[in-house]
Design a protein around this nucleic acid. Structure first.
Lengths: 142, 142
DNA sequence: AATATATAATTCATATATGAACTATTTATA
DNA sequence: TATAAATAGTTCATATATGAATTATATATT
């Protein structure tokens, strides 16, 4: 098999993901929130979420999460609340302002995603989904 | 059309790219070089390359490049050489040590890429390539 | 030639990433 | 129950990212 095909597709995959991110990110950051802070907002539900869970959702590590939550706290969008069952655990919860911002930005972001992905037909999207799933389902990645 | 399909595929695309990167990165960083510094090494040919061109190759911005080149210089892998035609321009060139490291790591990285991508058949790779190309070929992204 | 404009690279301020070490708790186990 | 091992979150050091402002130089225009 032509082995440069592997490299070409890998490069294209990385670049595509990166360009889509840049495109979507630009649109979100127009609303004076960083990309990662927006994603954190996205994953904080009414019950709150722990820093560790949030880090897992964002695919980032816990130490990184601390700073992001700190800055969001400074911005008035979230606050920390100690867990009663486990004194080690903090729940991150939305302030009213944070909830408002989330409710405002979420539909915008969803619409942006649909827009950039709409280049592909439904058949193509399902096909792409299958191919990508194969790549992440490998033992080597887990 | 089911609109959550767009979001699912977008998320999968981002996650796949991220996991592949993490996997490949881990293997490279075993050799005591950072991921970005390795990619810089990758793109510096015998004639050298300017900081701006290098930044474009790495999809990062020029201000970022300065620090990466600085650290690579500290590590003894590259040096800067003033252009004779244009005093604003610096060429980044490989030292012998940098060239040795590049020659050592390049085939390892290529092999790693082939390994993770080999989950897909040649037909699947070509299909994936087509689908991804459609996503980056949109006007919206340029 | 004098001035305005553009360009290459850097510096600065801020926000992520990453992994190692550390603190406070909790859970497991001898 | 005393102690070891595990866990949640933080701090620290270092390396990227990003965009705005700055410096030095080159090019275009009058």
């Amino acid at each position: 098999m032509n082995e440069s095909l592997h490299k070409d597709v890998y490069r294209l995959l990385r670049n595509t993901a990166k360009y889509l991110k840049i495109e979507l990110r630009k649109k979100i950051e127009e609303y004076d929130i960083t990309w990662q802070q927006f994603h954190a907002l996205y994953h904080i539900g009414d019950e709150g979420i722990t820093a560790n869970e949030l880090a897992r959702e964002l695919n980032c590590n816990a130490s990184n999460m601390t700073g992001i939550i700190d800055r969001m706290t400074d911005n008035g969008w979230v606050y920390r609340e100690h867990s009663k069952e486990d004194r080690r655990v903090w729940f991150v919860k939305l302030t009213d302002e944070g909830l408002n911002l989330k409710n405002k930005l979420l539909p915008i972001h969803q619409e942006n995603i649909i827009q950039v992905m709409s280049v592909l037909s439904e058949e193509e999207l399902m096909l792409l989904k299958d191919l990508l799933s194969k790549l992440t389902d490998t033992e080597a990645l887990l």
